[in-house]
């Protein structure tokens, strides 16, 4: 028996919005420790890694490990039926081919049950080693989304360069060039407005804008985003999900032939 209850169903709605542009379907691996998902996009250039810890749920029970293959467009249809303030409970029997999403209004006067068929998906997992990154940058997630959106107008790629002085995002194309520099903030009223840089060595890497724009769909999940970079390895873009977990995106850098 698997049962997971979230008072704020809006969290799962936002998670879905954050992954459905990159993934058509994915396997949600449920265990005693929580719900994990790891999946690459169709082109195998980026990877989504989601972790929702069991202790972050309002109620969580998972007697046996369960892998739920889910069509994300179908799940999205169901999640749209939930109000943001509804309480969500996901339920599945052991070895089930169905998962039930139950939404309850706060006053418990309306209860909705939606059953969704599960799929058998081929699982392909990558082993991602613990890495000490040369640069770890934290910045407001809305700022990151805006920068990526703005620079996407100039070209297909953005160069992210990090030094002690700050971070520079650059793009160029037919219409011209664009550079956006962010300095480390010295004092801000709110932590979520801060730009912080932990740098061992300067790094400059090139990434495809379209993936960064897809990652930015996670912006509603967290006021801050963390970018981790080292030379010649994939970028990690991480959004914390309240007290319950995180979503990480990995993106292979573009390289000169």
């Amino acid at each position: 028996m698997f049962e997971a209850r979230l008072v704020q169903s809006s969290i799962l709605k936002k998670v879905l919005e954050a992954i459905k542009e990159l993934l058509n379907e994915a396997t949600f691996d449920c265990s005693d420790s929580g719900i994990q998902l790891q999946a690459m996009d169709n082109s195998h250039v980026s990877l989504v890694s989601l972790n929702l810890r069991s202790d972050g749920f309002d109620k969580y029970r998972c007697d046996r490990n369960l892998s739920m293959g889910i069509n994300l467009a179908s799940m999205s249809k169901i999640m749209k039926c939930a109000g943001n303030d509804d309480v969500l409970t996901m339920k599945a029997q052991d070895n089930a081919d169905l998962v039930t999403f139950m939404f309850e209004s706060q006053n418990q006067e309306k209860v909705m049950d939606y059953e969704m068929k599960l799929m058998n998906l081929d699982q392909e997992h990558l082993g991602i080693p613990e890495t000490d990154y040369s640069c770890v940058i934290k910045l407001p997630s809305q700022e990151f989304a805006r920068i990526v959106r703005d620079l996407s107008q100039f070209g297909e790629s953005v160069v992210i360069s990090c030094t002690k002085e700050g971070i520079k995002f650059s793009a160029g194309g037919d219409i011209g060039n664009a550079n956006i520099k962010l300095a480390q903030t010295s004092n801000v009223d709110k932590d979520e407005d801060a730009v912080t840089i932990e740098m061992q060595e300067p790094v400059s890497l090139t990434f495809a804008c379209r993936y960064l724009n897809s990652f930015a769909k996670a912006t509603p999940l967290s006021p801050q985003v963390q970018l981790s970079m080292s030379a010649d390895v994939p970028l990690v873009v991480e959004y914390k999900i309240g007290d319950i977990g995180h979503i990480r995106y990995y993106l292979a850098p573009k390289i000169e032939d």
């Binding site: 690459m40 082109s43 195998h44 250039v45 980026s46 990877l47 392909e124 997992h125 990558l126 082993g127 991602i128 080693p129 790629s157 090139t206 495809a208 390895v233 994939p234 990995y250 292979a252 850098p253 573009k254 390289i255 000169e256 032939d257």
Partner: peptide, 14 residues
């Protein structure tokens, strides 16, 4: 030319 490698070029399958 600028190439776009796949993630599998960096991380092994498990």
């Amino acid at each position: 030319a600028i190439l776009q490698p796949a993630l599998g070029d960096y991380y092994g399958h498990i």
